[in-house]
Nucleic acid binder design. Structure first.
Length: 931
RNA sequence: GGGCGGUUAGCUCAGCUGGUUAGAGCGCCUGCCUUACAAGCAGGAGGUCGCAGGUUCGAGUCCUGCACUGCCCACCA
């Protein structure tokens, strides 16, 4: 029997099965729509994980958010396409394979470029799919048929095309400049790949003797004394009086005994700093490099590619840069050139990949002239064509775009897109071409392709247009470009998001649907550990999502992340929270058990059959891919409210109203990427309203022998449940899929809950009166439970109660008398004329007094305590409310509903205070009498 | 050096455009194995919203200053 569920929910028993089912059945594959299709599309690009990657919590958060939005849109009737892929991750992947080689005692040069690249492909074949397999476990509803890899031939073609076009447009140039150089990776890296960190260091002050003068010298300061070996000038500010008499003279470079000129240059931003004179090393410092060009200075390189001193370093040749530093300082001291050493904090740049200290190095590289691209990228955000959420990220984005430097795109690696440029061996002509040229077009000489590869972000920056077919004019581009949304972390805002905007806007300029790559960018927060520490391997506090999933189930982890994902704040991931959402999954599971148990019983008794439900509810659950109205805007369409619901009782009207209101709230929340709000709302609805109240209220009707009564009850019970499953499905796809199939007895109206309509609010099913009435009943029931707890009544003992109230509420209670009796454990309800405010074992609310009839004495002290506190609170409230209501300008300026509300509340407070005073008097009197 | 954020219950966090009684989960206390669920049920305690001013009829919410704290960006020797 399909309805025979185990008592406790075991995620591991179902998740694997559904994850495989979704992939196998290609449920999330979409065909490219024909041009002119009117179905609105929703497209999102997965930020491609590195092939070397392993799933971490950041991925899981990112993918959970995307999957929620994606499933939600799909269920609302959008043609929804989620584009997956992986990134070849230049340095990272190359390092992996180099490590393998090292284990065999080889390095990449031993086996040669071609063999090495073959090894990388081989590695990717074996290990590169790991992260995608992990993704499948998360239940992500991506279109696997569209999966790409950034080194695929079609992606490579796009890369070549982009490079050639930029080159032809004079936006790519090659030249010898100072770049950030990693001596361990032996490659240039971009500014973004350098991590600056304030590090305690030293600053050395060195004396350079003036040539032709006996004892005059200039003192310069440096944090990198070893570079002095390559100095070619000393610069002073032209306006600096101290050095005016030295203009045009020369100094003798200590240790090297080379004469170098004293130049005037505005390289010194602040002449007040230090000595006002600075050594100039054009080959080893970006500022000095510029100064060198301005002043036509020679460039002397004193280090090689691994940051060891070279032949230009004289006696220091062969030392590494740190050894050289030590030796240089010693020798300066010995020669009497060292004036002083001070502690100094230097913003040391390290390689983001391997942590090695970056060396500014003169080398020939390829650059993208970035400012022209940045202009459009700034404009599209300014004009709102791209919107950031939270919007303050736009500011960070502008800040970076406005101060952008040219992008060094060449890397001295082997794994990556080789630069489509060829050098003539004869005449050194450079040919940039889409296809491999046969010979030099200038002199006919033999050619050799440029050895460098492109920065990984060059290819990912071409997403999403490249994955949709650019440079060809493809149906996919027309159907899905611009994409709707990008969800990613702020850590790759510049690396990736900014580059995508620049490159896509450039290449897609003039495209009929717009040139921007996406309309919205939702930037999510960082997932930290429970102590708010950044997760890092070195700290050893990395939470492995797969481990957590195995412990609590995917749905619980997804729900945790969603519930904590308030925009703009980091997430402190704590297992206790996940534990509570596992409990939530269990709650859903057990609600289903309860339902199915009753349904089976009703079917056997011939009271009701599931077919009745199927026939009334199947209508309007659209099959995927058919065109229908997009839901959620209050328009008619499938998914609106609960169809076939028979609102006969108060609890029916109430739960139906609540369901619709919640549908609206979820819609509003998700529309604004307020995942946490949506999660809380649905959680509270299912647990706090449907389970805690509706199920309890409906129980007697399920057990009734009356066929008519039972039919409506079963119908409604299942109706709301099925609706709630659809509502929960984007957040918890696994358990909802399982139970949804079971609810239909294994014969659901679609292949998956993911392919039926998401609940949308039907205004006609919202009933404010029912919600108010229900609130009063709940208030009454809770009050009675409360009194009973205070009187320490045996849980099983039923007691009579008395109620004092007006006729409307009396009628309401009478109509729902049995519910009150059952849920509050009451045996008989009597309505009395006199106020019960003074009565023992009583509670007063603004709408009613209720008393539990029980002989045991109340705990006078505790009761007095409670009442006094309550009185103090209410008195304070009354003072405030009265003050406001006596205030002319409040009455004049505050909106009418606020004034009305306050008046009403004040009246209530007045009544309550009276009642509490009376109760307290009575208590004092009683206590006095007893003593 | 520039820029951005945070500071609300014992803990982790919500509180959107200022509006009636500041919420949740966990933890804590009391009582319940009530045949859907002990991963549960019922009830409860716990907050002068970092500090000081200001704007407003009204401030956790807006403004200023301060304190503490986190992050991003940065070629000043």
């Amino acid at each position: 029997m399909p309805h025979d569920l185990p008592k406790a929910y075991d995620p591991s028993a179902i998740e694997q099965r559904w994850a495989e089912y979704w992939v196998r059945e290609k449920l999330f594959h979409v065909e490219t729509p024909a041009q002119g299709s009117t179905q609105p599309t929703f497209t999102i690009t997965l930020p491609p994980p590195n092939v070397t990657g392993r799933l971490h919590m950041g991925h899981m958060l990112n993918q959970t958010e995307m999957d929620i939005v994606v499933r939600w849109h799909r269920m609302r009737g959008f043609l929804t396409m989620w584009l997956p892929g992986t990134d070849h991750a230049g340095i990272a992947t190359q390092m992996m394979v180099e490590r393998q080689l090292a284990a065999e005692g080889k390095n990449r040069r031993d086996i040669g470029r071609e063999a090495f690249i073959a090894r990388v492909w081989d590695w990717r074949e074996h290990y590169g799919g790991a992260i995608l397999e992990q993704m499948k476990r998360l239940g992500v509803s991506v279109d696997w048929s569209r999966e790409y890899f950034t080194m695929d031939e079609r992606m490579s073609r796009a890369v070549r095309e982009a490079f050639v076009r930029l080159y032809e447009q004079d936006l790519i140039y090659r030249g010898k400049y100072i770049v950030n150089w990693c001596p361990r990776c032996i490659t240039a890296v971009s500014d973004l790949e350098v991590v600056h960190e304030d590090t305690p260091g030293k600053i050395w002050e060195i004396r350079y003797p003036v040539v032709g003068s006996k004892d005059e010298y200039i003192v310069v300061a440096t944090t990198r004394p070893e570079t002095m070996l390559g100095d070619t000038a000393v610069a002073v500010n032209s306006a600096d009086e101290r050095y005016r008499h030295l203009h045009g003279k020369r100094v003798l470079l200590p240790l090297m005994n080379r004469e170098i000129p004293i130049i005037t240059d505005d390289i010194l931003a602040n002449p007040e700093f230090g000595t006002g004179a600075v050594k100039v090393t054009p080959s080893h410092d970006p500022n000095d490099f510029e100064a060198g060009l301005r002043n036509d200075l020679p460039q002397i390189e004193v280090m090689n590619e691994t940051a060891q001193m070279n032949e230009n370093a004289g006696p220091y040749q062969g030392l590494d840069r740190f050894g050289a530093r030590q030796k240089v300082v010693e020798d300066l001291e010995g020669g009497g050139f060292l004036v002083g050493v001070k502690d100094y904090v230097v913003p040391l740049g390290t390689c983001s990949r391997c942590g090695t200290i970056i060396e500014p190095r003169l080398s020939t590289q390829w650059f993208v002239k970035i400012k022209p691209l940045a202009e459009r990228a700034i404009e599209v955000v300014q004009k709102g064509e791209i919107k950031f959420v939270p919007e303050n990220y736009a500011k960070t984005y502008f800040e970076w775009m406005l101060n952008i430097h040219d992008w060094c795109i060449s890397r001295q690696l082997w794994w990556g897109h080789r630069i489509p440029a060829w050098h003539c061996k004869e005449c050194s002509e450079i040919i940039v071409s889409r296809d491999t040229p046969a010979k030099c077009k200038k002199c006919g000489g033999p050619l050799e392709q440029d050895n460098d590869v492109l920065d990984t972000w060059f290819s990912s920056g071409l997403l999403p247009c490249s994955a949709l077919g650019w440079p060809d004019d493809t149906p996919d581009l027309h159907a899905f470009y611009p994409t709707t949304l990008l969800i990613t972390g702020f850590d790759i805002l510049f690396f990736w998001v900014a580059r995508m905007v620049m490159m896509n806007c450039h290449f897609m300029r003039g495209f009929k649907n717009g040139d921007v790559p996406f309309r919205d960018v939702y930037i999510h927060s960082l997932v930290r550990d429970a102590e708010r520490q950044k997760m890092s391997k070195t700290k050893g506090n990395v939470v492995d999502p797969i481990e957590i999933i195995e412990k609590y189930g995917t749905d619980a982890v997804r729900f945790t992340l969603a519930a904590m994902a308030a925009p703009g704040t980091d997430i402190a991931f704590s297992e206790s929270r996940t534990e509570s959402y596992r409990a939530f999954a269990n709650k859903i599971w057990n609600a289903a058990r309860f339902l199915f148990m009753n349904v089976d019983r009703a079917q056997q008794a011939g009271l009701w059959s599931l077919n009745e439900f199927k026939s009334s509810h199947n209508k309007g659950l659209p099959q995927h891919g058919t065109s229908y109205n997009v839901l959620g805007s209050g328009k008619s369409g499938a998914g609106l409210g609960i169809q076939g619901f028979q609102a006969e009782t108060l609890e029916d009207r109430w739960i139906l109203s609540r369901f619709n209101r919640v549908a609206q709230e979820i819609h509003d929340a998700l529309q604004n990427y307020r995942f946490h709000e949506a999660a809380h709302v649905v959680y509270h609805f299912f647990w706090g309203e449907y389970c805690d109240w509706y199920l309890e209220l409906i129980k007697p009707r399920l057990a009734a022998d009356d066929r008519g009564q039972a039919r409506a009850a079963y119908n409604n019970l299942i109706g709301i449940f099925e609706g709630a499953l659809r509502m929960l499905s984007p957040f918890m796809p696994f358990i909802t899929e399982e139970l949804w199939h079971a609810a239909y007895d294994g014969a659901p109206p679609a292949k998956s809950i993911a392919l039926v309509a998401y609940p949308a609010a039907d205004p006609a099913q919202i009933n404010a009166d029912a919600e108010t009435e229900m609130a009063i009943l709940q208030d009454l029931i809770v009050s009675v439970r409360n009194i009973r707890a205070e009187l320490k009544v045996e849980p099983k003992q039923k007691l009579p109660i008395e109620i004092h109230t007006g006729s409307d509420i009396r009628s309401l209670i009478e109509r729902n008398r049995s519910a009150v009796e059952r849920l509050a454990n009451v045996d008989g309800v009597a309505f009395v004329e006199q106020s019960l405010a003074k009565a023992a074992g009583a509670r007063s609310t603004a709408r009613f007094d209720v008393r539990v009839i029980y002989e045991r004495k109340v705990d006078v002290a505790a009761e007095r305590d409670r009442l006094s506190k309550e009185l103090a609170r209410l008195t304070q409230e009354l003072t405030r409310a009265t003050g406001q209501l006596n205030n002319e300008s409040f009455l004049a300026k505050a909106p009418a509903n606020v004034v009305e509300g306050l008046k009403k509340r004040r009246a209530e407070v007045v009544v309550l205070i009276e009642k509490i005073r009376a109760a307290l008097d009575e208590l004092e009197g009683g206590a006095a009498a007893a003593s």
